[in-house]
Amino acid sequence: MFNLAPMFDMAPSALALIFIAFCLGGLVKGVSGMGLPTVAMGLLATVFPPAQAASLLFVPTVLTNAWQLATGPSPFAALKRFWPMVTANAVMAVACAGLLASAYAHYATVLLGVVLLVYAVFGLSGRRLPAPAHGGERWMSPAVGLATGALTGGTGVSVMPAAPYLQSLGLDKEALVQAMGLSFTVSTLGLGLGLWLAGGFAAQSLTGSALALIPAAIGMAAGQALRRRVSQTTFKKVFFVGLLALGAHLALGG
């Protein structure tokens, strides 16, 4: 299963892009607790087909988010509260992942660019979604899960609208990071299963995905160090401006 030959067959420029993409994705995650798949998928999609880019993300995304979930205050409490959201998320991610491996993958790249643009504009606005009305979480969570799963399956990125929705719930910092870890883990597992069922997840991809843990870990370590030196406000502005440019490039040139 772990065959190194496909990696050696890649052009040096492609290998360099993989290294840079996961270093930058890890850096963002180290600073903010999220953003590895968003950044890495956006960069990888400029060169690789969407299904291959999503496959390369699988191991680093699952392991880092599972760790984020497991080290939070109460994984079982998070699962008990958000199981309707993550169940709907997983089902839709599996159902929609075929787009990345289909003849319409070109549109997946454009859709990814649009999602990144919307996320960047929303982030730069400084606004938050309004909290659900009393009792509204019971129907909002599954709806958000369905939308997140559909976008995960169609773009390979699981941040929208799950992250803004979770931020609207007034969770404390640790519980929020844990809830996002749960949502992103389930999204990625659903995406991986959906790609495999659609024939878009080659076993050889696991080699590159496992090796991508190295630059992702380097980036996360750097991000954790940077977090102590740069304000969250400054970092978020730079992050979202970069995401805006990347999203525009993919949406217009995809």
Results as ranks from 00 to 15, higher is better:
S13N: 08
T109M: 01
N89W: 02
A216S: 14
A93Q: 00
Y107W: 15
L24Q: 12
I214F: 13
V94C: 09
N65H: 15
V47A: 13
P161W: 06
G181V: 01
T64V: 07
T155G: 04
A210I: 08
G242N: 07
A97H: 05
F122N: 04
A88Q: 11
G199D: 00
Q232M: 03
I218H: 04
G219Q: 08
N65Y: 13
A217Q: 05
L129N: 07
L169A: 00
L211M: 05
L69R: 07
G35Y: 08
L169C: 07
M10R: 06
M85P: 09
L57N: 15
R127L: 15
M92P: 05
S231H: 09
T148R: 12
S205N: 14
A245N: 03
L166S: 05
G242L: 12
P215H: 05
H106T: 12
G156W: 14
E137D: 13
L27A: 09
K236V: 05
S55M: 06
F235W: 02
L43K: 13
A77H: 09
P215V: 04
V177H: 12
L226C: 08
A16H: 03
K236P: 03
L197D: 00
G113D: 03
A163N: 11
D172F: 06
L116Y: 06
A150R: 08
L213G: 13
F240V: 07
S102I: 04
S183T: 15
S32G: 04
L151Y: 00
L246M: 06
L124S: 11
F76C: 03
I20W: 15
W67H: 09
L111H: 06
G33V: 03
L166G: 15
F22E: 01
G98V: 00
S158L: 10
T207F: 12
S13K: 09
P130W: 04
T233A: 04
M180G: 14
G33R: 10
A95Q: 00
N3W: 10
L44Y: 09
C96V: 08
L195S: 04
T233R: 12
A105N: 07
Q224N: 12
T188G: 04
K236R: 15
F240H: 13
M10W: 03
V39A: 10
